[in-house]
């Protein structure tokens, strides 16, 4: 309390503990602007300086960033939903109803999860459209476009595996149609062309790999649950890391040369 003119917040900001967490001040100097980005693990995703057009919505549509935001929303709401949801045919449907009507804020978490998943798909398509229209897949960004296409597919797979989990009529029939397409895979599906040449049958084929048997049932639900909550999100996260990393390594956001 030596200097009574200083405000309480100034005291906090000058304290040893605060300085150990945030190493530079807040003064608006060019040096500090750079330090804000380069000394923060999250903001460090960005370069410290960007081309002027990178902040123009008309150029980027912010579609990639919005896609990532929707992904974060689905992850957060998804983890919250997992506190109540049990992936078995006996419980799944009842748990969804329980979440909707008996759990405070359960309905809005489920709505958020579902709509953000849909919005993420739209955002991915818009992002692809804008990257195509600006020719941003051209050298040196060819490989990042490929990662992006895989991410597009992975996004739709995440949404599709989640579709079964409410275990209602909408879920089971959409998944019936979807997985039956797998049984028509040439060579690897039992209904597909040439499958009898290598002895693929309904018990061991592409579809039973997804469905865990010949019929959609409890084993399918569990399998889709694991794919939806663990397997595909991990793959998506790894691909996103590569995708973001490559933006910077390939010369930052695209622009007129």
């Amino acid at each position: 309390m030596a200097d009574s003119n200083k405000s309480f917040f100034t005291h906090v900001k000058e304290s040893y503990v605060w300085r150990s967490m945030f190493r530079h001040g807040y003064a608006d100097t060019p040096r500090n602007r750079i330090l804000q980005i380069s000394s923060n693990v999250f903001l460090h995703l960005h370069p410290t300086k960007v081309p002027r057009h990178a902040v123009r919505i008309r150029f980027t549509w912010c579609a990639g960033g919005v896609t990532f935001l929707f992904y974060l929303v689905t992850v957060v709401t998804g983890v919250i939903l997992m506190f109540y949801y049990r992936p078995t045919p006996e419980h799944a449907y009842a748990d969804i109803k329980y979440l909707q009507f008996d759990v405070p804020f359960g309905m809005i978490m489920r709505n958020m999860h579902r709509w953000a998943a849909h919005a993420m798909i739209i955002a991915v398509w818009v992002h692809m459209l804008r990257v195509f229209m600006t020719g941003s897949y051209k050298p040196p960004r060819e490989f990042n476009w490929i990662i992006g296409v895989v991410l597009l597919v992975v996004t739709m797979l995440m949404s599709f595996t989640g579709y079964l989990l409410p275990w209602d009529q909408l879920a089971i029939w959409a998944v019936t149609v979807g997985t039956n397409m797998a049984s028509a895979t040439p060579l690897l599906g039992h209904e597909g062309p040439f499958s009898d040449l290598i002895g693929v049958d309904a018990r061991y084929d592409m579809r039973s790999f997804l469905v865990a048997g010949k019929l959609i049932g409890g084993a399918t639900l569990l399998r889709f649950y694991v794919l939806h909550c663990i397997f595909i999100p991990i793959i998506a996260s790894i691909l996103m890391i590569v995708h973001f990393w490559r933006i910077r390594k390939d010369g930052g956001i695209s622009g007129p040369l």
Binding site: R33, I37, T48, K49, P51, R52, C62, G65, L69
Partner: peptide, 21 residues
């Protein structure tokens, strides 16, 4: 089309992202 000169990410880009979010 000229070589666009670069601006600071903080605050110009971060601000836009924050607003969009």
């Amino acid at each position: 089309i000229t070589l666009s000169h670069r601006i600071h990410t903080w605050p110009y880009l971060v601000r836009m992202e924050f607003l969009t979010a």
